[in-house]
Amino acid sequence: MNDLIDVSVWSGHWPFRAVKRREPKELKAFLQGKGVRQAWISSAEAVLYPDPMQGNEPLLEAVGGDEFFLPVPILDVSLPLWRKDAEECVRRFKVKAFKLTPNYHQTPLNDRKVDEFCAFAAEKKLAVCIQLRMMEERTHHPLMKIPPVQLGDLAKLASQHPTVKFLACAAFCRDLPKLREASNVFVEHSLVESPFTLKVALDAVGPERLVFGSHSPFIYYEANLAKLNADPVDVKPEALRAIRHGNAARILGA
């Protein structure tokens, strides 16, 4: 029985990588074959389009009514109409989470607009996903190098909005200790890798805040599935269940 909740997958074109399974329909079939029961999906195109809604809307239309997908629209809170768009997403498409890509939109996490958005998320009881990076920095296009969002900045933002549940996407292992005290920040493990990934991640953020995320289709799926095959000596079965689905459900208030 499929039990995985994958909290970070992407649809659409990303101009720096030629990847397969870019459309929701083929992605769904692929993910279900890997044991996924729900996937949180965002538009990769929305990260770079001048108005992210140009990428969000086709995705929202495509996955609307399909309970397999939980759409996570991208917002650029530097744009004047972000609030109107966010309200529309919530009203029309029952959106429960948004994703910010702060360094692609030049909105650092200490920006007043980000603070306003987090207040909006608190009011509407929405989860906030922060995409720290889209690709590893050493592999960026030479003319488009985007620095990562710093986890320390996210920890500080989260402390200012204690009722909001944040999800850090595409964190590196070495940065996880910066989230040790940030109890309302969850972490997906798509780019967390160490000699024994889950044990190290759990040591850093605890069993209640680590969630399964694949960053698919940009990362080989089996690479992230393999992280779940941790030795029971290192990772207890109840912690594994929480990573596979329990913690993701908690982000949404279940």
Binding site: P195, T197, A223, L225, K227
Partner: peptide, 17 residues
């Protein structure tokens, strides 16, 4: 290894078409 994880890196091959 140990910069990386055996199983995750094997997954790179098992996941390839």
């Amino acid at each position: 290894w140990p910069c990386r994880d055996y199983a995750t890196q094997v997954g790179r091959i098992l996941g390839a078409d």
